[in-house]
Design a protein around this nucleic acid. Structure first.
Length: 559
RNA sequence: GCGCCCGUAGCUCAGCGGAUAGAGCGUCAGGUUGCGGACCUGAAGGUCGUGGGUUCGAGUCCCGCCGGGCGCGCCA
């Protein structure tokens, strides 16, 4: 149990006690109040503060401070009945907060726990623990290398997956390839054109990589065909070959970012296995489809959308939306409790129809979640860079990462909300990458590793427990930050965000650096105190390493 | 025009309805006869876009307006 959970329980118990002892009136409405504790901005206000008294003022018709005082008195009795209580003191202060302070023993126990089970420290405490989630992200079309524009989705998706896993959920990372659309044919036609010295067609691809593909495509792939559609056949063959080649490159790029996928699904396979047909049949059986203007429509407006949506065009071909509903059916058939799609903000218009279709097919709409990532504007010399694979005017993700480093890029995206737009000046980013806060955190980790090496050389070892060492010195401050990791992970998993983790890692590094300044760790003249401090510092190292691992960032032993 | 997202320090961004709104970078002034100076201490810098409302309490919730982005196809 986290210290925060213990504090909530204690406040709840104190509330019950205050009613039982007649200090507070028994009002049903008040009993329904949720117990909340939060970290005060100022350390002198304690480790946690409860606002219960402020919330109860109206239903109890009492002054907040009077309620807080009653709770504080009741807390004394609760503690007396529970010698192992994590709460040391509870103080009622104006305007009505109940400021709580942990016992050193409770904090020490948590720190010892971190060292006893370093691998699991901080993990597995989320609210949706046990849920099996599918996270689909990147899913860039195989018509060109990943660009810096794809970086957002790659990191947001991977970070989300890591956070959910840390919260005890099972995650399947999935990549969807649109491998059979007209764009693949266009890519093939572009490859052929360059190979044969013709101009690239109007809706073709102009990037440097197409020239490379044209030089490498085997003769057998683009051999002459017969029949009326001979050129069409050649374009498709070249396109399939090229997109397969590009796909391998995409996988390699993602691997270098530390992003891996469990499942790769192709558009072609959905069709092949009948998922699209089954989904359409399912909608038809439910009476959610109708014919108009020669096309087949989904009655999305019946579920709150502002327009109905075409599923089958009047020429008989399937819309992208048709594949979407086939895919959502296929995913849910695999037994996931929850689906998360990571899409760019430009796709927000398609969210409603997808969720509506899922509902129409009898699935739980709430199980289909779409996270839209904000736009990243890349600037060079104050000018916005366009990111067009078709025009060939893009910056390859590989090139940027080679200069920034995956750790710095990960931190950059992890410390920002997924849905905010941001401006990135390429030159500025390269210049400032060495000033990325990630190195501040990694430095703290490396510094501790160095201290531990030094201690080993000196013949000092960490004590098995920090018990009895927190007292008044600098130890207590650092230990209390260490102890918060499980709460940080819990919050990250339930909010499905990583900003809290980067903030925490920075705070922990700051707390350690301050501790390092004030407390000499390796001191042969004080072997017992050194052993205790080594234990605390080791727990700090574990916490830093786990926080960084949660973000997919390395924790170096030296820098 | 309609819908969604965003607007917080010079810059990039944090901030479950709670106490004097924070961090990094940048700027300025300092710091090590001890374990890593990629560190530490301090200072300057804010009408939280704006006007109302709800609340004991609003950067946070609601409404209007202003500014920016995206979307409103039988494109993907």
């Amino acid at each position: 149990m986290t210290l925060r959970a213990a504090a909530r329980n204690a406040v709840g118990a104190a509330f019950e006690r205050a009613i039982a002892s007649g200090r507070l009136p028994d009002v049903p409405e008040a009993r329904a109040a949720e117990i909340e504790v939060s970290r005060p901005a100022k350390p002198e206000h304690g480790d946690l503060a409860a606002n219960l008294a402020l919330r109860l003022a109206k239903p109890l018709r009492m002054a907040p401070i009077a309620i807080a005082t009653a709770l504080a008195e009741a807390m004394v009795e609760v503690r007396a009945a529970d010698p192992g209580s994590a709460i040391g003191t509870a103080e009622a202060v104006n305007p009505g907060f109940l400021n709580l302070r942990f016992t050193d023993a409770a904090v020490e126990a948590i720190v010892d726990h971190a060292r006893r089970e370093p691998a699991g420290w901080g993990r597995g405490t989320g609210a949706s623990s046990g849920r099996h989630v599918n996270v689909e992200f990147v899913s860039a079309n195989p018509t060109g290398p990943l660009t810096v524009g794809n970086a957002r989705g790659a990191f947001v998706g991977d970070l989300l997956a890591r956070v959910l896993e840390a919260g005890g959920q099972r995650v399947t990372r999935e990549y969807y390839f649109n491998d059979s659309g007209a764009q693949v044919r266009n890519l093939g036609a572009s490859v052929l054109a360059i190979r044969e010295g013709r101009d690239v067609p109007e809706d073709g691809y102009h990037g440097e990589y197409v020239v490379d593909l044209a030089a490498e495509v085997p003769d057998t792939v683009v051999a002459a065909r017969t029949g009326d559609d001979a050129e069409e056949q050649r374009a498709w063959a070249a396109g399939r070959w090229a997109s397969d080649r590009i796909r391998k490159g995409i996988e390699a790029s993602l691997a270098s970012l530390g992003v891996r996928f469990d499942v790769w699904t192709t558009e072609g396979s959905l069709l092949e296995h009948g998922w699209v047909d089954r989904a359409i049949a399912r909608l038809r059986e439910g009476g959610h489809l109708y014919e108009a203007d020669g096309a087949t429509w989904f009655r999305s407006t019946a579920f709150g959308d502002d327009k109905d949506r075409v599923v089958i065009r009047s020429n008989g071909s399937l819309t992208y939306f048709a594949y979407d509903i086939g895919y959502v059916t296929e995913k849910l058939s695999r037994g996931f409790d929850h689906l998360i799609y990571i899409w760019g903000a430009d796709h927000h218009g398609t969210v409603a129809r997808l969720r509506n279709a899922a509902e129409a097919m009898g699935f739980d709409k709430a199980a289909v979640e779409v996270i839209l990532t904000g736009w990243v504007h890349f600037l060079q010399d104050g000018q916005e860079l366009s990111m067009s694979k078709r025009a060939g005017t893009f910056i390859a993700l590989d090139d940027l990462l080679a200069e920034l480093g995956a750790d710095a890029a990960r931190w950059y995206f992890a410390s920002r909300g997924a849905n905010v737009n941001m401006d990135v000046d390429i030159e500025l980013a390269k210049k400032q990458s060495s000033e990325n806060p990630v190195y501040y955190v990694q430095y703290a980790h490396a510094r501790i590793a160095s201290i531990l090496r030094k201690a080993a050389d000196t013949g000092l070892a960490a004590a098995p427990s920090v018990a009895g060492s927190l007292g008044e010195g600098p130890e207590g401050t650092l230990a209390r930050v260490v102890a918060r990791l499980p709460e940080v992970v819990e919050d990250a998993a339930s909010a499905q965000e990583t900003q809290g983790v980067t903030t925490y890692a920075t705070e922990l590094a700051t707390a350690f650096h301050a501790f390092y300044r004030d407390a000499r760790v390796v001191d042969p003249d004080e072997p017992e105190r050194s052993a205790k401090r080594l234990a605390l510092v080791d727990a700090t190292r574990i916490s830093l390493a786990n926080a960084l691992a949660l973000l997919g960032i390395s924790a170096p032993e030296q820098m």
